[in-house]
Write a protein that binds this DNA or RNA. Sequence first.
RNA 1: GGGGGAGUGCCCGAGUGGUUAAAGGGGACUGGCUGUAAACCAGUUGGCUCUGCCUACAGAGGUUCGAAUCCUCUCUCCCCCA
Length: 391
Amino acid sequence: MPGSTPELTRNAVDVLPEGRLAEQLQGERPLRVKLGIDPTTADIHLGHTVVLGKLAEFQAAGHTVVLIVGDFTARVGDPSGRSASRPVPTPEEIEANATTYQEQAFKLLDPARTEVRRNGEWLDMRLDELLRLMGTTTVARLLERDDFQKRMAANAPIAAHELLYPLLQGYDSVAVEADVELGGTDQKFNLLFGRDVQSAYGRPQQSIMTLPILVGTDGVRKMSKSLGNYVGVTDPPAEMFGKLMSIPDEAMDEYFRLLLGEDGRPPGPPNQAKRELGRRLVERFHGAGAGAAAEAAFDRVFVERSVPDDIPAVDLGGYLGDGDGAVHLPRLLAGAFGISSSEARRLLAGGGVKLDGEPLAADPLDLPAAALAGRVLQVGKRRFARLHAAG
RNA sequence: GGGGGAGUGCCCGAGUGGUUAAAGGGGACUGGCUGUAAACCAGUUGGCUCUGCCUACAGAGGUUCGAAUCCUCUCUCCCCCA
C-alpha cells in the first residue's frame, strides 16, 4: 500500500511496536485504522482534529478509517488523564452528541473511506461474555496505569467500572479488526492494552500511534471543552478567528505544526503569523474566502473599533419600567447578555459598559428608552447588542 | 462488619459560637497598556425590585440573644482492621 512511514508518522509521539507499522504498510491490503471518540460533549474541537487529521492522511494513502463513536463507553467514562470520575451524560445527550460527532468528523474525513460504528453494537454484551473479557487481564494490570496510581496516592476514589474502560476499548479493536489504532498521548495505555485484548481473542495485534495533545487557547492546559479553552470546529468564523488570535505566541509553533502540518510558525512578526493561522484554519472549516472575511471582520472590531456586522438585536419593549418609559439598565444588560443583574451593576460601576462606544455611567440606573433606541450596547470588548425601540 | 478522618464560594484552601457574603491563592471577568499575545498595574468575582433585602459553608432537625463553628440524624468520600 502507498503511504510512506516517514510521512504517516510525522508528528507522532509513539509508534509501537517499533517497526510494526512499516511492515503493515508493506502489505497489499488497505489497513483498518481505528479511532474511538466518546460523545461526552457536544463539540469536536481543534484538539480532536490533530488525530482526525492524521486519519485523513491514512485515508489519502488509501487506507480505511474506522471511526468508533463510543456511545457505550461514554457511559463508563475514560479515566485517562482524569483525577476524578467523570459525570455520566444521559443517554439522550450521548445520542445527540453521537449524531453531531459524525457530521463534524466529516469536515476532515472522507465519508467514502470511513466506516462509522457505534460500540453499543457489540459492548452491550451478556454477562458471561463480559466475564470472559475480564478474565483476559488482572487487576494489577488495570491498576498500573498512571492516572490510577496518582489517584490512589491522592486517596481519590476509583470507581470499579472505570477499571473496565481499557478492556472495553480493547474489545472495540477486536470487534472491528483494527490494524492500527490512533489516539492522543494520554491514550497510550488504552491503545497498548487493546493489543493484549486482541491477542487474548486470537486476533492479530494492532499497532498504535499516539499524537501530541494540543494545548488550549490559554496556552497552558490541554484543549478541552470543560476548561473553556477550546476552539470548536463548528464555531462561527469570526469567533474561531478571534479565539485563535488570543492564543499566546508560544503556542503558535504547536498550532502550525499539529494543525497545519508546517514545521513551525512562519518567520516575521508574531501578529502576522497568528493572522495566517487564523485565516487558514477558518478556511479549513468554513470554506475558501471565509478566512479573509473573518480577518476583515476582526479588524473592523478590534483595530478600527467599530461594531461587527451581525450582532443580536434587542427589543427595548421587554425592559420598559412602569409606564414612565424608562429602562432599568441592569435588567437590560442581564437580558441582553445573559449575565446576572448584579454582575451588570458591577460592570457599570467598573466602566465596562458602553453605549455607542462611550462608557456608560453607573449613576442613573434608569435611562429613557428614547436615549437607547437605535444605539449599540456593548459589554467589554466583544459583546454587542443593537437596541431597538419597543414595538 | 469494627475503628478513625473528612465534606466551606468556579477550584484549592483558611476559619472551631458574635464587625463572616466568609482570609489567602488560582481561575475568570472589567479597565489601563497592547498585537483580543505575554508581562505589568488597578478593580470586580452569590442573588435581587440594591443606601436595603434574601440565600449561602454536604442535607434535615435542634441548642443559643446569635452557628460554617456546639448537639442529633441522614447522605457522600477517604484511611486502617476484618
